[in-house]
């Protein structure tokens, strides 16, 4: 397989190109600007569209338009920009439009800073925009996954006609790793049933208005059914040294990279630590986490770079059978492996 050393942010753009993404609409924001820059360099080489929109709001609406015309379309941003995009994302979900949004999370709230954080978890996973909808959320933790999961994001977006997030933080976006470039997709899905092409056969309507209350409720229930199917079929996790673990840590994105190192250090010290990493945040690995409660573990420690947003979902999944502890860093600080191991030792007396 041909390999290339590249930044996570660039790998996402390669993934998009390989997935047959035909248009990029975005607005600059640190630490996601490299996605727009890489797209501006690459997309024109393929005669595909790159446009720097006048605002985050315009960018997501351009995504809405391109998706409505049946294109695979990408945008990228970070926390404050994602907040601005939320209305448009709700419209995409409400109109069942497939699209991919990369969020390279930074520190917040407000202007915060440009350090790596995971504080967008709730805004992305718990609506953010208005109304009853969910988005599929993939959480890569390497440059390779930035490429692979971006490709997967397009596939899932089309499969379920739903917006898909690639949610990660500045560390994964900025770091360089060797990426094995996969084969480009050979066939794009047929969207002629609903997409608008400006032809007699494609006089379709892209719309999220349902004036009649019963009609809208019916549509809400259809969406709920779709989300149930996604929950059933699309959960993805990575487990590391979990089989004989007595303590399990849970984390995603760059903190899961640190957890892997922490597990190795702990094991050297004779502490049976393991890691469970959600690769999909929606669908959340509810069953996989619930199952941990039946193992007679000493403890479960959720490690996140946010204020307890992830641990809430972990505890919901545990259904009160166990309660996960929390170790978190914020403000742009990334936990270190030693910090985590020492915390584990202290918490569980090991």
């Amino acid at each position: 397989m041909p390999r290339k050393l590249m930044k996570g942010n660039h790998a996402a753009v390669y993934g998009a190109i390989l997935a047959g993404c035909q248009a990029y609409y975005g607005y600059p924001i640190t630490p996601a600007s490299e996605i727009a820059e890489a797209a501006s360099l690459l997309f024109p080489k393929f005669g595909r569209t790159f446009l720097q929109a006048e605002s985050e709001v315009a960018a997501i609406n351009m995504v809405y338009g391109a998706a409505g015309c049946g294109l695979r379309v990408l945008t990228g941003s970070s926390g404050p920009g994602i907040s601005l995009k939320m209305e448009g994302i709700s419209y995409c979900a409400g109109s069942a439009l497939p699209c991919v949004i990369v969020d390279i999370m930074r520190g917040g709230p407000g202007l915060g800073n440009i350090g790596p954080e995971q504080g967008d978890y709730n805004q992305v996973l718990k609506g953010g925009g208005h109304g009853n909808y969910k988005v599929i959320v993939l959480a890569p933790n390497s440059a390779q996954e930035m490429c692979d999961l971006t490709m997967l994001a397009f596939e899932l977006a089309d499969k379920y006609r739903n917006p898909v997030f690639v949610l990660t933080d500045g560390v994964i976006g900025q770091m360089m790793e060797a990426v094995e470039l996969p084969e480009p997709v050979t066939e794009l899905p047929d969207k002629s049933e609903w997409a608008v092409y400006g032809t007699a056969d494609s006089r379709h309507l892209i719309n999220s208005i349902y004036l009649d209350h019963d009609d809208l409720e019916r549509w809400n229930r259809e969406l709920m059914k779709k989300y149930e199917i996604i929950q059933k079929n699309e959960v993805r996790v990575e487990e590391y040294r979990i089989d004989d673990a007595e303590i399990v840590t849970i984390g995603y994105g760059s903190s899961s990279r640190v957890l892997r190192s922490a597990v190795d250090i702990a094991r050297e010290r004779g502490i049976k630590l393991g890691m469970l990493r959600p690769i999909t945040l929606f669908p959340f690995p509810v069953d996989e986490i619930a199952e941990l409660a039946d193992r007679g573990l000493t403890g479960i420690l959720t490690v996140e770079m946010s204020d307890g947003q992830l641990v809430d979902d972990v505890n919901l999944a545990l259904r009160g059978k166990m309660i996960s502890d929390l170790y978190n860093r914020m403000g742009g600080n990334v936990p270190t492996a030693l910090e985590i191991v020492e915390n584990v030792s202290e918490l569980y007396g090991v």
Partner: peptide, 23 residues
Amino acid sequence: HTGNLQVPHGRAPAVATSVSRAN
């Protein structure tokens, strides 16, 4: 009797931009 997109408040020119680029 055309293709139709209903869009958020104020955003028609942004949507029209990508629709025009796509088609």
